[in-house]
Design a protein around this nucleic acid. Structure first.
Lengths: 185, 185, 185, 185
DNA sequence: CATGAATGAGGATTCATTCAT
DNA sequence: GATGAATGAATCCTCATTCAT
């Protein structure tokens, strides 16, 4: 990944800003406030992050990278079914950990090329994982990667409405629901 | 339901405001703007709806009443399983129709006593519906009414992220996931 | 005193309003609030008290009448010195009891003719009291009734800044200061 | 006194605001109006003076400094009695000149540390002045610095109710009243 | 590059007063 | 007469964004 080298003071500012910002609600970032808390001028924040979305992306960058890693690992797993379900589980965990991830993943207005590239890799891998699982008969066929992503976001939403303890139970319901319907006596 | 009778002019203002307001994003209601569009003074809006939440509640009142009706009808249905699933389907439809319903249902700060009462009836009925379905073996046991409500909200969220066409497929996945797990050969 | 006879319901409204209003800070009367608390319409408040000042006057009417009484009694007291000082003491007490009295007394825009008449009587009596005391050598000569009224208001102000316990001590200082200066060895 | 150096433009805005504000009634400062008159944005006013009280304090800063000077000078005066009375006279003059001073002095919610410090020095000095005068037998003993401050505020109030000409006469009455009572033949 | 002062549109809210019912 | 709905000017305050220093 291309990485512009920053002057050390600029790098420090950037870090300070991210450090401070991640303690804030992603949906309600006040640039002035962050600047003040970070001990830098507002202008500096704008220099590093021209839009709020750019800052949100940057805050999610680490998680996105972890998601890329996850994709690769899952694709390398020979068991299509378990690769798929453990991918979903971990993706859900990551989205719950990082409150800004959902909007970054869903946005189609990426500011950073790195983010765009990573998201594409994630999407492609996810698509492949899903297809493999479908071909293995572990997942119902009437399902696209996009719908499924939305469903994960829906589960994330549901967990946030309740407590973190709901995560695994709700995930189980989802996984159960994704299996091809079986004939019942 | 106790209903204070409004003077005709007051009733007209109230209707104008609701009419105008329902064309706005429920999560972003600007009282001044609504007043202007409705052709009434700001004060009039505040008189009828002291807080934004009061307005949001009023906007959802009709849908909430329909949900109460739905609850009663479903409870009257002797088939526990189909009553349950058709309740979920219609509830989801209502939530999707009425973009403000979710927050009203989830809020624990009801402004209107009517809303509070209706929500309680809905919740109790839903609880009963769920239990009946569980006893009939149609729904897994490890599930509370609250978690399930959150799940519906999650599905609503997922559908909104995509298109209205996703509603039935995603609902099917949910319903499928709610069934007790069966041993598979 | 001419007294318009009010219809009994009007009289009741008037009383309710006064009753409620006297529990409010005189300098910050909100007509709408008072109407609500009194269980009458705003219009009714306006009918009885066309201006805020009219209400303030009405609230002080009882105290003003007591002050008129006080003036008469003091004038009847043959001891000019003690009549004067006990007048000041009681006047101060009345002003402290009735937080709206000072503005009513100082205002030159009386709404009610009764108030105007009462204030004139008070002023004349006070003037007479002062002169008598001066002639008796109990009070310094370089002092007008107006200045002295202002001084009472000043003492009232000072007591309000502290506690009610300051009343007598501060009054003593005033009385002491009003005596003709004596040669000191 | 620690004084943050302001950028020249900021200093200019601040001065403009103070200049404009001091022409307004201290008890009724409308921030928007001041901004408009000063030719700056509202935000600028709020930046310099987060609360109305901060602005009021700033408007009185010069007078407060003069009062500090006065305290020091008075303490340096070897004649306890005349130091005391001339202090009172000048303090009264300052309060009359600066219509916002009284509230700043009486407030216990200082915004600026400079103001807080200055007020404390003033209070301590005043306390010392009073004690000295009491020990010298020039002032009655039953009097605290606080009550006396309130009394000055009372006299200020009284003068404002009348004309500036009342100042010296009323001060004389106060000073006369503060002297220990003497036995009279 | 960094700074942070300035901007000012925008949204919330209140309350004195009027007037139709 | 009483009512209280309606009005809307007025005020408060915030915050995204720009730009001079």
């Amino acid at each position: 990944m291309a990485m512009k080298v920053l002057r050390s003071d600029a790098a420090r500012s950037r870090e300070r800003i991210l450090e401070v910002a991640c303690a804030h609600d992603r949906g309600d970032l006040r640039l002035n406030e962050i600047a003040r808390e970070a001990g830098v001028g507002v202008g500096t924040v704008y220099r590093h992050f021209p839009t709020v979305h750019a800052l949100v992306e940057a805050l999610s960058m680490t998680t996105i990278e972890r998601m890329v890693e996850l994709s690769r690992r899952s694709l390398a797993d020979p068991d299509a079914g378990s690769a798929f379900s453990s991918y979903l589980r971990t993706a859900l965990e990551l989205q719950l950990e990082d409150g800004g991830l959902q909007v970054v993943l869903l946005s189609d207005a990426d500011e950073s090329p790195d983010v765009r590239a990573a998201k594409q890799e994630i999407l492609h891998s996810f698509d492949a994982l899903l297809r493999r699982a479908q071909q293995a008969g572990a997942v119902r066929d009437d399902l696209t990667a996009e719908r499924l992503s939305h469903l994960i976001c829906g589960i994330e939403h549901a967990v946030r409405l309740g407590s973190a303890d709901d995560r695994e139970p709700l995930l189980q319901i989802l996984l159960n629901g994704l299996r091809p319907e079986v004939a019942r006596s």
